[in-house]
């Protein structure tokens, strides 16, 4: 969803593919067309049962391999299945968490987060444990072997309070993006402002990419005290507006219908100033 924001506008050429054709392409011989069809079915939210079952089958594809041994079709199928919102995909995606391709595992964790079924929590936890040795991070750092940020974010969204002691260890991970993912999950699971404030501090960091990442995290957790800091962050207004949108919608979910809280009005005033 948020990716769309960076594209100027969707070109009409991608929409000119029909659903029938995309489904046919997904079963065809041409590897490029198959991969594109998998992406397309997710992008346009084609929730047809046949699309879902073909994408699930594609998670076990062996035909499409990169030179390094990656599985491009599996990656796109895993991403698409999160967008389609069909829980039939949960168990197959759990199996994909064991795929040898890092990006398939990452996509599977992200899609399991989107599907929202807590049944995958134990599997996510065991993947997270790959980065731990007892009560410490593994000594070989920085450790890139698992998509820790995607795993941490999924555990936070899925309400995996049982994982709090493990997640907190990743607050000290040498990769900042992973620290933020841990802080985001910790906030979601404990509602302790200390973790929200940690993300607010990250807004003042030196690296634009990391500031963007912290903006996305604050938007995702809807941390209202960050509103002013978000508006002042050195980053594109488009990205700040999306983060504030996250805060605003969180406020609205929390308040009775048609009532605008003081916080909601505050956030909209800031948003107006960024248009």
């Amino acid at each position: 969803m948020s990716l769309d924001v960076f594209a100027p506008d969707e070109s009409s050429s991608s929409e000119s593919l029909t659903i029938g054709q995309a489904i046919a392409n997904l079963q065809g011989e041409d590897l490029g067309l198959r991969m594109y069809a998998a992406w397309w079915l997710g992008r346009f939210r084609v929730r047809e049962p046949v699309a879902v079952s073909l994408l699930i089958q594609a998670l076990e594809d062996e035909a499409d391999r990169t030179e390094e041994g990656g599985y491009p079709l599996r990656r796109n199928a895993a991403r698409a299945l999160g967008k389609l919102g069909d829980r039939q995909a949960v168990l197959p995606l759990i199996q994909s968490l064991d795929c040898s391709d890092f990006y398939v595992r990452e996509a599977a964790a992200q899609s399991l987060e989107m599907l929202g079924d807590p049944v995958c929590i134990p599997n996510l936890i065991s993947l997270l444990k790959a980065g731990l040795q007892g009560n410490h991070l593994v000594p070989n750092q920085p450790d890139f072997s698992q998509p820790y940020d995607a795993i941490l974010e999924a555990l936070g969204t899925l309400g995996a309070t049982v994982a709090v002691p493990l997640i907190s260890l990743f607050l000290d991970h040498p990769i900042e993006r992973i620290q933020y993912a841990a802080a985001r999950a910790m906030y979601q699971l404990t509602q302790d402002v200390i973790y929200g404030e940690r993300l607010v501090q990250a807004l003042a960091g030196k690296d634009l990419q990391l500031r963007r990442s912290a903006l996305a995290d604050l938007g995702a957790i809807g941390y209202l005290p960050a509103a002013e800091a978000i508006a002042q962050t050195l980053a594109e207004n488009s990205i700040k507006l999306i983060a504030l949108k996250g805060l605003l919608e969180h406020q609205i979910y929390m308040s009775p219908s048609n009532e605008l809280s003081e916080g909601a009005v505050r956030v909209m005033t800031l948003m107006d100033g960024l248009l």
Partner: peptide, 13 residues
Amino acid sequence: NLTVIARIWLAQR
């Protein structure tokens, strides 16, 4: 879009 709806509520006030 919930954010646009909220902004309309604010305008309607």
